[in-house]
Design a protein around this nucleic acid. Structure first.
Length: 269
DNA sequence: TCCTTATGTACAA
DNA sequence: TGTACCTAAGGAC
């Protein structure tokens, strides 16, 4: 599930369910038990997101830094919480709600300066109001690395993952193998603005949809479809299937240990 | 029941 | 570039 939109949505949902309340904190699985004991009974003040990093602020104690990695999952539910399964790393409970965290890459108690250091090493996040697209373009325009790799580099732009990368490059007709330095300022501005809109919609709907209204199955006179991951997309995980626009088979390749998807006809150099 | 795969990252060599 | 880490779902048997 986790690209930046998921994490910003989680920040909102944690705020809605737990902010300003005293929270019972536990680690049924045990790996976060010491910190959970310190946090138990304290007040959750706020939740913050930057890229794929989630921060839960506990009054007087510090921040819980969470990164879901590839497998991490979060489950919300109404109180009372059911008995936890033995994979629950972190559980929060108050009078009205509970939330379980499973399989995160990171779940750690950190200080303000440690949190700041994480912000400092991340690039601008299209979902944060203070984000500066110019800072991202400075890096992109000086790099011989492919634009596909740069979009996944969290130091360049924070929050974009494998789905948004594939989809935004398709929406702009950009070959994923083009070097960053060949991306024009106008192209970058369009990509950034598009990501901002797509990711905001992703936060709202808690899923990734990238297909323009004029390209929906209804608009194209085709049978309805649902892609594997739950949203409507152009190319992500559609290897060898016909491009929704031109019918050419969608191509896939390994790029930095991830699957890249693109339409070679719609995305020319 | 086993195998593969996944919207991610860090570190070693 | 390869590997380790973490979990769960889906498909092949």
């Amino acid at each position: 599930m986790p690209e930046g939109h998921t994490i910003h949505r989680l920040a909102q949902d944690h705020t809605a369910a737990f902010a300003r309340s005293a929270v019972r904190v536990s680690s049924p699985q045990g790996k976060f038990a010491d910190a959970a004991a310190l946090l138990d009974g304290t007040v959750l003040d706020s939740a913050d997101a930057h890229g794929k990093h989630l921060f839960l602020g506990f009054r007087g104690t510090g921040w819980v830094h969470i990164h879901l990695g590839l497998f991490g999952k979060v489950t919300f539910g109404p109180a009372p919480a059911p008995p936890p399964t033995d994979t629950v790393r972190l559980r929060l409970v108050n009078e009205s709600a509970y939330v379980d965290l499973r399989g995160p890459t990171t779940c750690a108690l950190i200080t303000d300066p440690e949190k700041q250091a994480i912000h400092d090493r991340l690039g601008p996040d299209p979902l944060r109001p203070d984000a500066d697209p110019e800072a991202a373009y400075r890096r992109v325009s000086r790099s011989r690395t492919t634009v596909a790799a740069l979009l996944m580099d969290q130091k360049v732009i924070a929050g974009v993952g494998n789905v948004y990368r594939a989809e935004v490059l398709f929406r702009h007709g950009i070959d994923p193998y083009r070097p960053g330095k060949d991306i024009t300022r106008a192209e970058w501005d369009a990509i950034w603005q598009d990501l901002t809109g797509l990711m905001r919609e992703g936060v709202r709907n808690n899923r990734i949809d990238t297909v323009r209204p004029e390209h929906t199955p209804e608009a194209m006179g085709r049978p309805p479809r649902v892609d594997d991951h739950g949203g409507e997309v152009y190319v992500y995980r559609r290897a060898n299937q016909p491009c929704h626009l031109c019918g050419e088979p969608v191509r896939t390749a390994d790029l930095a240990a991830r699957n890249l998807f693109w339409c070679p006809a719609c995305q020319k150099r």
